[in-house]
């Protein structure tokens, strides 16, 4: 820690003031109540809840077709007019996308952000990411940052396309927390995404694409993304 003398005396003073009068510690609260009472549900129910919540938040949710999610991705890009798609630095071997004839030009987030800023901010139409898991009752994707999957991929390009294994759906946030055990090894950045970027700061009128992606497209698969 690079504490200057001033901040270290500030630290001591603050802590001393907080301890000037002993405060009896209260018992540890247990988290028992939640807003919805969905409980454990079949995947189909969770999937439906995720879909309807995400759609209510202006996101698009697409079930991967029988030809596989790559075909779905290609179609999405075609429909959205996406000409350049940026992929994570590396995808697991089973998930990699080979350069294709019909689809958008592919690039990879394979340089430090400083080098890629221009293309990330000004050239790439869409970023592609893999969701770690998702939360049904609020319609929320969970993305973990990693050397393979930089966090700005889901933030800077105007469109964010995210692949989600629906078998990795949790009912609600407390359940996700309990089952995923993030607390034991926190990633640099863990981000919950529940729709495209939006604001209601002008006269309470909702507008999308405030600073982050203007659209969020979620492709649902049933296949291991790890």
């Amino acid at each position: 820690m690079s504490a200057t003398p001033q901040t270290s005396s500030a630290r001591a003073n603050i802590l001393a003031r907080l301890r000037s009068k002993p405060v009896p510690p209260l018992p540890q609260p247990t988290v028992q109540v939640w807003t919805s009472q969905m409980g454990d549900q079949p995947v189909e129910v969770l999937r439906q809840s995720l879909k309807s919540n995400l759609e209510a938040a202006h996101a698009e949710v697409i079930q991967a077709g029988p030809e596989g999610w790559r075909a779905t991705l290609q179609k999405v890009c075609q429909d959205q007019g996406i000409k350049t798609l940026m992929l994570p630095r590396s995808l697991p071997p089973t998930l990699d996308i080979a350069p294709w004839d019909q689809g958008p030009a592919l690039s990879r987030f394979d340089q430090p952000m400083e080098t890629l800023k221009d293309s990330l901010f000004n050239q790439v139409d869409a970023g592609f990411t893999l969701a770690e898991c998702a939360i049904a009752d609020t319609g929320t994707l969970v993305l973990l940052s990693s050397p393979e999957q930089p966090r700005s991929l889901s933030l800077v390009p105007p469109v964010h396309i995210c692949l989600l294994d629906v078998r990795r759906l949790h009912t609600d946030m407390p359940t996700a927390l309990a089952r995923e055990q993030w607390a034991s090894a926190m990633p640099t950045n863990l981000i919950f995404v529940s729709g495209p970027s939006k604001t209601a700061d002008i006269q309470q009128t909702l507008a999308y694409g405030a600073h982050g992606p203007k659209s969020l497209i979620v492709i649902l698969v049933e296949e291991d993304l790890q």
Binding site: T138, G139, P147, T188, N189, V193, S194, G212
Partner: peptide
């Protein structure tokens, strides 16, 4: 029910 982003930051770039 939830905001668009809920951002957990636990370290600088590793």
């Amino acid at each position: 029910a939830v905001t668009t982003y809920f951002n957990w930051i636990s370290s600088p770039r590793k």
